[in-house]
């Protein structure tokens, strides 16, 4: 991020935060990426409740869960816990 840093006259008083953490993607921390097999998934909704990074969301339109790869850190908890073994962890493609 190359954005110009604010001076003391501009920053809010007392260190009050002025950006949401959701502006700070953590997906690039990942070395393994969770991939779900929708065929196997029973939509038990366990994985969204145990993901440390809120990276498995409920999509109201599709009535299904989906990964938010902007934030998934690739911990593998979802894959480890999925009762249907619907999630596998695959190595991220190396950037060329």
């Amino acid at each position: 991020m190359t954005e110009k840093q604010k001076g003391w006259k501009e920053v809010p008083v007392a260190g009050v935060c002025w950006k949401p953490a959701t502006d700070y993607p953590t997906g690039d921390w990942r070395t393994f990426k969770p991939i779900r097999d929708p065929e196997k998934c029973t939509k038990c909704l366990l994985c969204p409740m145990i993901c440390p990074d809120s990276a498995i969301e409920w999509n109201r339109n599709t009535e299904d869960i989906q990964f938010d790869y902007d934030f998934c850190k690739g911990c593998g908890i979802c894959a480890n816990e999925c009762p249907a073994e619907a999630i596998i962890m695959t190595r991220e493609e190396e950037e060329a």
């Binding site: 953490a21 700070y24 953590t26 440390p52 902007d70 934030f71 690739g74 593998g76």
Partner: peptide, 9 residues
């Protein structure tokens, strides 16, 4: 929310 900097897992 997401975007916190806790370690993976």
């Amino acid at each position: 929310t997401s975007g916190h900097r806790a370690c993976a897992g």
